[in-house]
Write a protein that binds this DNA or RNA. Sequence first.
DNA 1: CTGATGAATGCCGAATAGGAACTTATATAA
DNA 2: TTATATAAGTTCCTATTCGGCATTCATCAG
Lengths: 192, 192
Amino acid sequence: MQWSELEDQACSVSRTISVIGDRWTLMILRDCFLRVRRFDDFQERLGIGRPILADRLKKLVDAFVLTKVAYQNNPTRYEYRLTPKGLDLYPIIMSIVHWGDTHMAGKKGRPLLHHHKTCNHQFDPVMVCSECAEPLDPREVRTSLGPGARHPQHMPVELAAGVHQRSAKAKSSDEARPKATGRAKLKAPAGA
Amino acid sequence: MQWSELEDQACSVSRTISVIGDRWTLMILRDCFLRVRRFDDFQERLGIGRPILADRLKKLVDAFVLTKVAYQNNPTRYEYRLTPKGLDLYPIIMSIVHWGDTHMAGKKGRPLLHHHKTCNHQFDPVMVCSECAEPLDPREVRTSLGPGARHPQHMPVELAAGVHQRSAKAKSSDEARPKATGRAKLKAPAGA
DNA sequence: CTGATGAATGCCGAATAGGAACTTATATAA
DNA sequence: TTATATAAGTTCCTATTCGGCATTCATCAG
């Protein structure tokens, strides 16, 4: 499978990985959230080669994750800023940071601390259910087919087992709609 | 920078990326959470080459993200299961899925739906603050140095700017740039 | 004009991906 | 007994991609 085929797949993970599934891209994005914006700053902080950096930045701009903003004229120079789409990557980056803090930190502890201005506490990111606000445990989640489902290889094994080529009818009980009852403030963008 | 150098860095993102920052690895992990466990199932679902699959599985086992469990004897065959450390990757995978659902879904909608057994609702994952349970907005988060902090290139720009270890040519950049915040609050909050 | 700065390219060796066939070990079928 | 099927790899080879160095490009300061 080629890199470019990934984004054509009917799988959200594949398509996301086609944008961010690259070592350098993730490092660049981390720096973006640390408010790094200029080519040479990225280059110096990451120790990345300039050609690769240029390539990754261009791809991120093409994917509307970053946008080039002129910060001076004559010559016009640009800096790279996160778009709203790029800002939405925050949970991914924070999840990665938190996993690293939890499982990969050296004996000295975590390198960075996060302080929430809203509540004025140091915090950890927690992934919760949009409906009941409970932290998510993978064993408490059941996956079912959505309207965009196409290929069995993107389904959980227990659903893929009976399906062979074509789009399967969602056979789970609540196939219908997300119907967000419950805490409105937790409701994530519905997407699609 | 080599792949192998990443894991030596004092940055949680670097170290995490050294484990999961690979296209195939992320796809494999997605399948793990969809309860795929056997070599040939991974191979068939992902269309990945067998050598690469074997390599990635081995790396994940070495990183204690997966573990090999014998599911039969004569001949002994193993399947791959997520360890607790691997299960902790769930927020990362879910963040990726959700971003893809939100920003990369085709017109047909998302391929998979997630149902929370705990509350019996279809849901989206939301990343919240562990202290106040509010959804996280990157602009409401301030980053500060933790006990494991070492290199300025892992700090947010406004903190790295004041650190001495910076290379000599930094003077011009500091001059030309609007001073963000001073270095007033560099000190990390004491305990979590 | 010359040099400095910020950014993008070309070239080339090294690493990686991908496919096909091969291996091992056993159970089942002919 | 031989043959076939199965699961989990491994070996080998080719083609692509990656990463780093040096260069190029455009513009402004002097």
